[in-house]
Amino acid sequence: MFEALLGNGLILKKIIESIKELVTEVNFEVTSEAISLQAMDASHVALVVLVLRASEFEEYRCDRPQTLGVSITNLAKLLKIAGNDDSIILRAEDEAHVLTLVFTGKNNEKMCEFNLNLLTLDSEHLGIPEQEYSAEVTMSSSEFSRICRELTQVTDTLNLSVDKESVKFAVSGDIGTGSITMKANNSDKSEEKLILNVSDTVSMAFALRYLNLFNKASSLSDEVVLSLSPEVPVVLKFAFDLGELKYFLAPKIAE
């Protein structure tokens, strides 16, 4: 038996909204320690890694580890029915064929129960190596989101350069070229704050289309951490009370 009670159901709604355009069918691994998933997008350019710690749920029980194959598309449809203030219970019997979702209103005035049919999916687990990164950028997630969105109007590729003092977001398109440079600072304003941890200067190119999809997770966390090393996938990490959501994106390579 697996059962997890989440008092703040909104966070689960936000998580699923943040991944549904990247991955449509995924295996959730449930253990006594965590609910986790790892899934690549269809074009094998991006990877989503989610961990929700058991200890952060109001109630959590997992008698034996289980893989739950879930249609994210359909889960998102059901979660739309849950109110933002609702608590959410996730429940599955051992060797389950359905995932039960129970949404309960704040004052217990309304309870919705749905059984989502589970899928049998090929599990495809990538061995992600432990990696020391050349540069780590911690900044406001909404500011990063805004920069990516605005630069998308110029072109589809973001050139990201980080040195010890600043991070530069540069684009080059048919209409012209441009860049936004932010200097490391410890401003009290969360929008301006930028922390750099750089051992080596890095300059890499990424598809803005994917970064814009990742940035849907900015509603989960005020900060995003970008980890960069030459010629390896960038990691965008959004940490929140319940756990963390990480996105890996393969770089573009100059022809």
Binding site: M40, H44, V45, A46, L47, E124, H125, L126, G127, I128, P129, T157, A205, A207, V232, P233, F248, A250, P251, K252, I253, A254, E255
Partner: peptide, 14 residues
Amino acid sequence: ANEQASLRRFFDHI
């Protein structure tokens, strides 16, 4: 132009 790399090139596929 930049060529898009595949994630599979970076991670072992187990």
